[in-house]
């Protein structure tokens, strides 16, 4: 569903991402982890078509971002860590805009259901500036889910959500995957990654240091057997995690 082959992104002399390759099958959730500055956001932005990779190819639902970017983007939803909203559109207008953009059928029936699911029914006519941080995040999530994407890319999706919202979001991610969507989840919350993800991609300084299921990663690093994901992460990324 989501495929990246030898993905590389350079900014002048600086290498943000180098030669990263991975695949996400339908129904699979890939956890993308790494320390700050490892290249996670750059990778996600390349996948979403926001920035163009210097080298490598990206395919979403069989459409490559080079040859058929519109079909690729139509199959995709990218939910960034900070909600990207138009400050002059109300909640409902955002959803109508996205519905038209992605050709969503039956929008009149879907809107109230989605608004209720995100607890935004009372806020349909509110502008983003009148919403709390969590509500804006919920609106961004609603915009991402409205067109039933077959590929879902989430960057720190729980940021700003209340405990109930976090639980609902975890359930939504699992439900979307079980309905056949390929999901990439980038997060520093390792317990979330451990709970939801079937595969892991660990980045460090723009390079892939581990990729596969937890068992596959342990098989290549037997010294980590029996250790928690946090320990595995710290060992793979070379970070101590101890207070100075």
């Amino acid at each position: 569903m989501i495929s990246a082959q030898t993905l590389t992104k350079l900014y002048g002399d600086f290498t943000a991402v180098r030669g990263v390759t991975f695949d996400v099958a339908p129904g699979e959730i890939l956890g993308l982890v790494g320390p700050n500055g490892a290249g996670k956001t750059t990778t996600l932005r390349c996948l979403a078509g926001i920035i163009t990779p210097t080298e490598g190819t990206i395919a979403i639902a069989g459409h490559t971002m080079d040859d058929d970017p519109i079909a690729a983007k139509r199959a995709l939803a990218f939910i960034p860590d900070e909600p990207h909203l138009f400050e002059y559109l109300s909640v409902e207008e955002h959803l109508r805009f996205i519905a038209r953009m992605y050709g969503v059928p039956d929008v009149e029936n879907r809107l109230p259901v989605l608004l209720a699911e995100m607890e935004l029914s009372e806020k349909g006519r509110s502008l983003p500036g009148e919403l709390s941080r969590g509500m804006r995040q919920k609106l961004a999530i609603a915009c991402g889910l409205l067109h039933e994407p077959s590929a879902l890319i989430l960057d720190e999706p729980l940021t700003g959500l209340d405990p109930a919202g976090m639980r609902r979001m975890r359930a939504t991610i699992s439900a979307r995957a079980s309905r056949g969507a390929g999901v990439i989840l980038s997060s520093h919350l390792l317990n979330l990654v451990e709970e939801l993800c079937s595969k892991l991609l660990v980045l460090r300084q723009g390079e892939c240091v581990a990729y596969g299921t937890m068992d596959e990663i342990i098989a290549t690093h037997p010294e980590l057997n029996g250790r928690s994901l946090e320990d595995v992460f710290l060992a793979l990324t070379g970070e101590s995690g101890e207070a100075s």
């Binding site: 900070e82 400050e87 038209r100 059928p105």
Partner: peptide, 28 residues
Amino acid sequence: GRRSFGTITGPKAGRATLRLAAKGHPAL
């Protein structure tokens, strides 16, 4: 592209909206 757009205070609070047909070219 790093921050929220949600804190603007500029747009007026008026809610008169324009109708958008459900189908048609996305650029519209």
